[in-house]
Design a protein around this nucleic acid. Sequence first.
DNA 1: AATTGTAATGACAGCGCTGTCAGATACAAT
DNA 2: ATTGTATCTGACAGCGCTGTCATTACAATT
Lengths: 351, 351
Amino acid sequence: MEKRTETKLTMAKATIDDVADLAGVSIKTVSRVVNHEPNVRESTRQKVETAIARLNYKPNISARNLASHRSHLIVLVYDDPGAYDTPSAGFVIRMQQGALQACRASNCELLIHPCNYRDRRVKSELTGLIERTRPDGVVIAAPLSNMSSIVNAISATKVPFIRLSPGTKSLNEFSVGTNDRAIAAEMTRYLASLGHKRIAFITGHSKHKAVANRLRGYKDGLQQAGLAFSEWLVANGDNSIRSGETAAAELLSRDRAPTAIFAANDDMAAGVIRIANRLGISVPGQLSVAGFDDSALARQIYPALTTVRQPLSEMAEKAAAALIGERQLEPGITVVEGELKIRESTGAAPN
Amino acid sequence: MEKRTETKLTMAKATIDDVADLAGVSIKTVSRVVNHEPNVRESTRQKVETAIARLNYKPNISARNLASHRSHLIVLVYDDPGAYDTPSAGFVIRMQQGALQACRASNCELLIHPCNYRDRRVKSELTGLIERTRPDGVVIAAPLSNMSSIVNAISATKVPFIRLSPGTKSLNEFSVGTNDRAIAAEMTRYLASLGHKRIAFITGHSKHKAVANRLRGYKDGLQQAGLAFSEWLVANGDNSIRSGETAAAELLSRDRAPTAIFAANDDMAAGVIRIANRLGISVPGQLSVAGFDDSALARQIYPALTTVRQPLSEMAEKAAAALIGERQLEPGITVVEGELKIRESTGAAPN
DNA sequence: AATTGTAATGACAGCGCTGTCAGATACAAT
DNA sequence: ATTGTATCTGACAGCGCTGTCATTACAATT
């Protein structure tokens, strides 16, 4: 408490020793308070907290990390949509938000690492980053999380990682995913409940495993609603708006065309709506359209898209929290449930 | 070199002591080699580097930071386009690339921090981040760099920062910008050189100072080309595609409509092209359109947009390098020159 | 009042590195 | 051989914190 009479402006950054002096306790006790460790008497905690506030003390991250053998860093790795101009940046934001939330709760920092999965150097880029920063854990988003060469490279660093992905073979690994299949079935049943008999489906890109599960869910849903499945009702897309257009044009040109189209992602659903507009088919009057993802696009287009909201933020939060050690996860896959977002693009089937 | 006979798999992470032992030098010498310090004999350097490679030694960042009183961290702060679904994510990517390049060159890490300038909590979010991580420097991108309350908050942390922005009043500050005005004049002259006599301009969002400079450049260009300026040729936009549409509709509805439209950013230029399509005006046959930014959109739309490429990557690199201490910057503003990207949307004036 | 058990606190070593400064070595010029 | 000078190298302290373990305080029990 001696030299602490200097003005705040000229005073050097306070250390844990300064706080301990001011509070009249040992540095270890300050450490306990700062890290929310148990076994500190309430009155002591108060004293320490007052001292911390008075000195505007912020723990030195490097010192903490060095002493604790942890980096208090979580790395979030994802394929950067910005790099290829897909409209799904909201995707990334939601993951970041979730991961950040988990980090903030535990004094960790988030190192976000957008990268290009098509780049041959990604693997060394990632292992380099991991070896340099030695994060407490790595969260890997799709589609990187579905690419075994990348996952293996990360696995080789021995740093714990969790994949945001629909599945894992090995039970030594962890992943967090959505119930794509069940929720796709639910959407299908919802469409059936509106009176639709001919509900078509547009498949997505083959790299995304989650997207394949949506097709299965669609089939489940048809069956549950007592509707027959037919190859005739399925068209193939690749997740792009354009492929949605092509697929829709094909489906709608058939006689006995579908009255509802469920696309495996929002971009393709947007393509369906564009084609419907061009063909003079009203949505949802003559055609109901549903998507999947609840991307930003879903709310921008007219009519606003009925879709499935993936709990991306929760997923990332669960994963980050588990890596930090705040939360325990079952080995294998942890499922976080999605949610139907009923908006304007779906309605009763035409007579 | 004693316990280093274990297999690589079971061996714990090598420390600087291990390397020193293996190479038969002191740890200080290893440190010199790792940090590219001068005054190390070539043969010694070789020995050390061999040892480093053999042990796959990676310096412990926390230890280094603690001892050197530096965090070896650069924070890049920008408004997150993903959060509001503008198509300008490429912007961010390019800045990141530049900053990353400077960081890689000096053993630094980049903490990228997207945030929402509309959120009231940004200031405390930023100061909190800075006080926690104590980065070596902060790079602030537009429009955050033009918002004095945010800049002041960052400035108060006493951590060095550089703004990516067209200007600074104070000579105690640093900023890196483009020659918006001169290059906008150049674009205008280019349009004039194609024979256009009525060249219109669509202004951008008032928050962006850089954008205001483009209007001045446009006026300069007209004058240099011997063309008269008229208020009548200027329409106001707010950087969005929609505002570009509105402005274009207005400009094109006038009699003696312009034969060329120069928009202060690419998004608005894209809006112009959409309206032209709707009105059946061919681009560039009847109307030439130019943008500014060279955003991803510029290459996606048809016809591909003639625009100005901002050297964002270079700008960010210069800024980051200066903060790291690799490069010296003049106080005040440092200008990095932009470049005309002539593509398909501009052509000879109609007869 | 003595004993025991548990909660609260502190002393101290040491995490892996860099900065400082003193000491060793090399090589040129006497 | 000697000195001077520039170049190279190492010993050592200490950055600010946490983990371990010993110690103390206090309540509960006999």
